[in-house]
């Protein structure tokens, strides 16, 4: 059994207790995903599994089925993903600790089609907390990406 993360295969942990988050951070040198609360309340550890958001702190690595995408897997060579660029453009962070989780969740929010209005974005981003309260800028960044996609 292997784990597919950002298109590369990695070994599964032997200890069944190991969460996807701890495995990535401690063993695979994928430290972009952050550990906030470690209890599924803050969303800092959000990654995508087959395009769907999951909390990597609540998922035992041995139960992962599907391709994992983390913040390290978004950019193409030196080109930022449009959501990463939008977070820069809109200054959508202060301390930046929640940002990888916010961006992963934001990518899914747009791909799911849940970025139609400010209120809809707020509702579908509700699992990602930002103690710096950069929420207006985060929503603006997401709206700009959704609008750019809609305009093709």
């Amino acid at each position: 059994m292997t784990l597919c993360i950002n298109g590369a295969d990695y070994p599964m942990p032997n200890d069944p207790r190991t969460t996807l988050l701890d495995h990535m951070r401690e063993k695979l040198n994928l430290t972009g995903t952050k550990k906030g609360c470690d209890h599924g309340q803050c969303g800092a550890c959000t990654v995508l599994v087959d395009g769907k958001r999951v909390l990597s702190c609540l998922q035992l690595a041995q139960t992962v089925r599907g391709d994992v995408t983390t913040i390290e897997g978004l950019s193409k060579n030196d080109t930022l993903h449009p959501m990463q660029a939008a977070f820069l453009e809109h200054d959508a962070y202060q301390c930046g600790f929640c940002t990888p989780g916010q961006i992963m969740s934001a990518v899914a929010c747009v791909s799911e089609g849940h970025a139609g209005s400010d209120a809809e974005i707020a509702d579908w981003m509700s699992g990602n907390l930002c103690r710096c309260a950069a929420y207006p800028q985060i929503r603006a960044a997401i709206a700009s990406v959704a609008q750019a996609e809609a305009e093709g």
Binding site: T46, V49, R53, V54, L55, Q59, S105, C109, S126, G127
Partner: peptide, 9 residues
């Protein structure tokens, strides 16, 4: 229920 990540699992 909860938030999108919770609903996915």
């Amino acid at each position: 229920i909860g938030d999108p990540a919770v609903r996915n699992r």
